[in-house]
Computed example of a mutant assay.
Amino acid sequence: MSKTYLTLCISLTLFLCIHFLSFSQKLPEANEPFKIGMAGYTYHKFDLDRTLEDLATNQVKYLCIKDFHLPFNSSEQEIAAFHQKLAEKGVTGYAVGPIYMRSKEDVDNAFDYAKRVGVKLIVGVPNTELLPYINEKVKAYDFKYAIHMHGPDIALYPDADDIWSHIKDLDTRMGMCLDIGHTARNGKDPVADLEKYKDRIFDMHIKDVTAATKEGKSIEIGRGILDIPAFVQMLRKTGYSGVCSLEHERNFDNPFSGIAESIGYFRGVIVATKK
């Protein structure tokens, strides 16, 4: 299949997804092993009601919960009310994070928070010296722990290779959140990393970037340098069954059209690459 033909197919299916999805009873990802979700950080300038309104608009059913929508000190009643709001929009809060952890107290608070929220996946950014302690927590709670990578922006966990070097000898519930944009900005191939570390990738942040360097900026999916069709095909090949959560980091004051375009393009690729 030529690149020009594939681009034409994706453009057409993107148009169809954006304009006609509301009339369909079946989302493009319905028969895929993976799910489409949203990283809560995308909406850090908006309250929960506006966030859920946008998720409903885009028919996104999964949300990684950030503490600005559900604070760490939330009561049982507040947590129940939070989940009720999500349920009314058909949304499931599937994980919490990313949560930065600089001390054992931070770790304890994060695991207690996740347990009270009712999820079994924590996306975290812990100091490396805390990993043995987190490893014991994972065993005790039977949670999965996904370390988030940040590319060249900070020295801590720049990419999947670095995370693997820290977790390879730990419990198999210690894994990673593959951020495909930051991976590319650190000079690595997210498609290859997905295949290489498939057994320890528990969460995923999907996005596109303008360049495979530190200077690369977040941009709507399909406008950047990432080979999204190859990535979707690798999702199928590896049987990834977690959530692909859009983390849209452009125009935080008004991200909504960019979110719709990115989700629409990703769904268009799903349709265009089906065999």
Rank of each mutant, 00 (worst) to 15 (best):
R185D: 04
S241Q: 13
V125T: 10
H69C: 11
I206D: 02
V96K: 02
D108P: 06
I270H: 07
F231R: 04
P71D: 02
C177W: 00
Q77R: 12
E105D: 11
I99S: 00
Y265K: 02
V107N: 06
V107L: 09
S74L: 08
M101Q: 10
T57H: 12
F252K: 03
P255N: 03
K45F: 14
W164D: 13
K26Y: 09
A30V: 14
Y141A: 05
Y145W: 07
G93V: 14
D253L: 12
L12Q: 09
T51P: 05
S262T: 07
S245A: 15
A39C: 13
G90A: 13
T183R: 07
V96W: 00
V117A: 04
E78P: 05
K237G: 05
T7H: 11
L63A: 03
Y100C: 01
K144Y: 15
G118I: 15
P132H: 08
L48W: 09
D54I: 04
A155F: 12
I163W: 01
Y157L: 10
M1N: 10
T128P: 06
D49T: 10
K3I: 13
A211I: 03
L121D: 09
M149P: 01
K66I: 04
G264N: 04
R185A: 10
I99C: 02
C9Q: 14
L131M: 04
G37F: 02
R250P: 03
Y141I: 05
G224I: 08
V96M: 07
H248K: 02
L6T: 09
V123K: 00
K217L: 02
E247D: 09
I206G: 05
E78H: 09
H248G: 00
L70T: 06
T92E: 15
S11F: 08
M176Q: 11
L6W: 06
I219F: 00
T7D: 14
A260G: 07
D49R: 10
I79R: 02
D199N: 10
E29K: 08
E129C: 04
I270K: 08
D108I: 14
Q84N: 11
R185W: 05
D47C: 11
H148N: 04
K3F: 10
G216S: 09
E53Y: 12
N73D: 15
V96G: 05
A230E: 04
